[in-house]
Design a protein around this nucleic acid. Structure first.
Lengths: 133, 133
DNA sequence: GGTGAAGATTACCTTGAGGTAAGTGCATGC
DNA sequence: GCATGCACTTACCTCAAGGTAATCTTCACC
């Protein structure tokens, strides 16, 4: 990142090009996952170490089994997570971040830092805005 | 960003704390905007310079008027965008990024770079995955 | 031989984000 | 005097994301 505005322009350009019929743009594509209610939470949970299905379910209790399966499947499809089946007595399945998955943690971490650093100002802005209304 | 895994742990910790009744976590909160279909596109469009309502509508033709108004209103509420009314003959309204809005461009830019750099590997992974199915 | 855990899949249902379309008030241009 | 542009607002409708809950298979334990 040298120049934020420059990056913005490249982004807009790619976006427009994509809208022009080439299919969905890569940024939009990735953003859908980022914005997804569970994807990033699972990626970050797996960033702490490999986990089994029910282990994930215990660490993220408010996800339904259906969404856990589905989100894991999507992440696997995108090559961010790999699935390893061990045929132990009750077959156990382990999920891991792939190198690609690990590489997402870095840019995503910047966003987390921004979020944590900006939340007070955002909340203050909301309060002001709502006070006027 | 010194250590990605460390950041991940802080994230998980905050998330869990938030789930524990403090309200929605700041990261989730910010992510909702990031993941929003239009918010980031508008922020990036405004990163190229201040724009008026219909100017934005022309640059982002596939957004509906309703969503443009609504998204702009939300961004304004969060203090990312400011609204300036000039009472010219047909009243014109200009939208600008606030300093807070500008600061988002940096971490977001990292994500854009990651997206553009990773899309080929993601698409390859999807192809492989779908081939097996 | 009944119970429980592991790792799912499936059917059904609700909610809300976002699209479409039309209307509003005002002013300039044709 | 009709149309057009600006900046919205409102009503209505649709579709898909995601929740709930039931079900499945296999094995170990008591």
């Amino acid at each position: 990142m040298q120049n934020a505005v420059e990056t913005a322009e490249i982004y807009i350009e790619r976006w427009s090009a994509a809208a022009g019929e080439t299919g969905p743009c890569p940024v939009r594509d990735v953003l859908d996952k980022i914005g997804d209610k569970w994807s990033m939470l699972l990626v970050m949970t797996l960033a702490c170490g490999d986990k089994r299905f029910n282990e994930l379910h215990r660490e993220v209790p408010d996800i339904s089994q259906k969404m856990l399966t589905q989100t894991l499947r999507d992440l696997q499809r995108d090559g961010l997570v790999s699935r390893h089946v061990f045929d132990t007595k009750p077959p156990s399945v382990e999920y891991r971040l792939t190198p690609l998955g690990h590489s997402l943690i870095v840019p995503f971490g910047h966003l987390i830092e921004w979020a944590n650093g900006s939340i007070r100002r955002i909340e203050a802005a909301r309060k002001d805005f709502d006070a006027v209304r």
